[in-house]
């Protein structure tokens, strides 16, 4: 898929909505910084402000839900558990689900009521978008 085609696909879902504008801004950010590995949600909220897309406080959440999905899989989600000793553990998808639904600690297997306060969520570019942007750079 080419970048133009991807943008048309995203536009078909959101039309003139701010979701389309923020999706484009995120793709352009990835194009500008192709090696970016950690994008927290707050970075997308900052992008929304920079692009004057500030009417809706949950715009970034809707865009992330879409861009992490199967239609235009631009982003992957990552989650890291940081304990008091600053040891960082990357959660796998199943572990993330169990942490959300059952507060299950990925290393001890025990219920941990404060677990969600020590896991940090971030996003990073998918291989799908990297391939598209690499093709775009060749033009």
């Amino acid at each position: 898929m080419r970048k133009e085609e991807l943008l048309r696909q995203i536009y078909a879902v959101w039309r003139e909505g701010d979701e389309f504008s923020l999706s484009v801004a995120i793709i352009e950010l990835i194009q500008k910084f192709p090696s970016v590995r950690h994008m927290p949600m707050t970075r997308f909220q900052q992008l929304a402000r920079e692009n004057s897309l500030t009417k809706d406080p949950y715009l970034s959440q809707r865009v992330v839900q879409y861009l992490c999905g199967a239609d235009s899989p631009v982003l992957n989600i990552g989650a890291e558990l940081i304990e008091e000793d600053d040891e960082v553990y990357q959660l796998k998808a199943d572990e993330l689900r169990l942490a959300v639904n059952h507060k299950l600690h990925p290393l001890t297997g025990e219920i941990d009521e404060t677990l969600a306060d020590r896991i940090f969520v971030y996003f990073y570019p998918s291989e799908f978008i990297k391939d598209i942007l690499a093709k775009d750079a060749e033009k």
């Binding site: 970016v36 950690h38 994008m39 927290p40 949600m41 707050t42 970075r43 900052q46 989650a79 993330l96 942490a99 959300v100 677990l115 969600a116 306060d117 020590r118 896991i119 940090f120 969520v121 971030y122």
Partner: peptide, 11 residues
């Protein structure tokens, strides 16, 4: 890049 968000806040 910017401040981090916990899983609890995100969810």
């Amino acid at each position: 890049m910017s401040e981090r968000q916990t899983l609890g806040e995100f969810h």
